[in-house]
Simulated assay, not measured.
Amino acid sequence: MKTTVKMIGLCAAVLTLGMAAPAFAETTLRIGTVLAPNDPMGQGLEKFKAEVEEATNGEVVVQVFHNSQLGDTTEMIDQARAGANVGTVTDVARLSSFVPSLAIMSAPFLFDTYEQADKFALSEEYLEWGDQLKEESGLVMLASNWYQGPRHVLTQKPISTPADLNGVRMRTIGAPIWIETIRAMGAEPTPIAWGEVYSALQMGNIDAAEAQPTAITGAKLFEVIKHVTKTGHIQLVTALVVSASAWDEISEENQKIVRDLAVENGRHASQLTIDLGEKSLADVEAAGVTVSDVDLAPFKEAVSGVYGLLDLEEEAAIVNKVLGR
């Protein structure tokens, strides 16, 4: 009788343990973006999701939220820092408040090609700054090679020199490198959430904006502006970041898989950006907006002091060294 009772108890314990301990610990990464699903970044995130889940055998699940479903980029970063399971694709300049050197990725007229930005984003020097980011902010940078394209000036009047931007209220990203670049170009920097840009232009709360070609079409800004001037003043190189608390739940083996796929899909999304950029500008022009080239020399001269103003001259020298120029 005692033996039977013991056997029953043992079987019950085994069953209980079996129910309590799954074969693997599943971790979900929730990643949001302010951009539309058909934007190259959105497409890249969906591909990243599928490949991560397959490569980790479902041990890491990625949920993607488009069109500011989780908030504006700054709000998502704040949520992640507070410990929420949230990640996003962000311009690196927003992260410079934690690691000032990171602002160099958004410096004006720094990179001539995506290949240069990709090379620097994987350099030892840059990755060291990425390691500091986790310590200083509670954010983990998975990859910094998600290219969104050249930022151009969107206005209601023709622009040919920085003087034409005098007094123009231009929406930009609320990080010092962006604000000082737009100010140096002659405009009045006005940071507001990306999701509010269309209505702000429509209602006249701002006079202008600056954005990459695919974002102009994705947000339908061609409906509320008259001119696109191809300044390309900043090459928008962005980073995929996640909450450190969610990241630390992932095994080292799976962390390597996720990082490698973040870099690989960053390149995929970036190539989409490059491929779709000219088409986007053609679509904008077809909608009745004037798309113009411009002499960049006056704009480059106007922003040349931004590096010294924000104490980024040493970082610029590091970029030039890595790129061999």
Score class of each variant (00 low, 15 high):
T4K: 07
T4G: 02
M7D: 10
A13V: 13
V14M: 03
L17Y: 15
P22N: 03
A23H: 08
R30F: 01
D39R: 04
M41H: 14
M41D: 03
Q43F: 08
L45G: 10
E46P: 07
E46L: 08
E51D: 15
V52H: 00
V52C: 00
V52G: 01
T56H: 04
N57Q: 14
V60L: 07
V61W: 00
V62A: 07
D72L: 08
T74M: 07
E75Y: 11
E75N: 13
M76W: 11
Q79F: 06
A80H: 09
A84K: 11
N85M: 05
N85T: 07
G87Y: 03
T90N: 02
V92Q: 05
R94C: 07
R94A: 01
S97M: 10
A107M: 13
A107Q: 08
F111K: 01
F111C: 10
D112H: 14
S123V: 04
S123M: 02
L127W: 12
E128C: 05
K134F: 09
S137Q: 06
G138R: 05
L139S: 02
L139M: 12
M141C: 05
A143F: 03
P150W: 14
R151E: 14
H152D: 10
T155Y: 06
T155P: 00
Q156A: 13
S160A: 09
P162C: 06
A163H: 10
D164Q: 09
N166P: 09
T172L: 04
G174N: 14
I179T: 13
T181S: 06
M185E: 04
G186I: 06
G186A: 03
E188D: 13
A193E: 08
A200D: 03
Q202I: 03
G204F: 13
A209D: 13
E210R: 00
A211W: 02
T214S: 14
A215Y: 10
A219C: 03
T231G: 00
H233T: 06
Q235L: 15
L236Q: 13
A239V: 06
S245M: 15
I250G: 08
S251H: 04
N254M: 05
Q255G: 00
K256C: 05
G266D: 14
S270F: 13
L272I: 04
K279L: 11
A282Q: 15
A282D: 15
G288N: 01
S292L: 09
D293C: 09
D293N: 15
D295G: 10
D295R: 12
A297F: 10
P298A: 10
G305L: 09
Y307T: 05
L309R: 05
E315W: 08
A316L: 07
N320I: 14
L323K: 12
L323E: 14
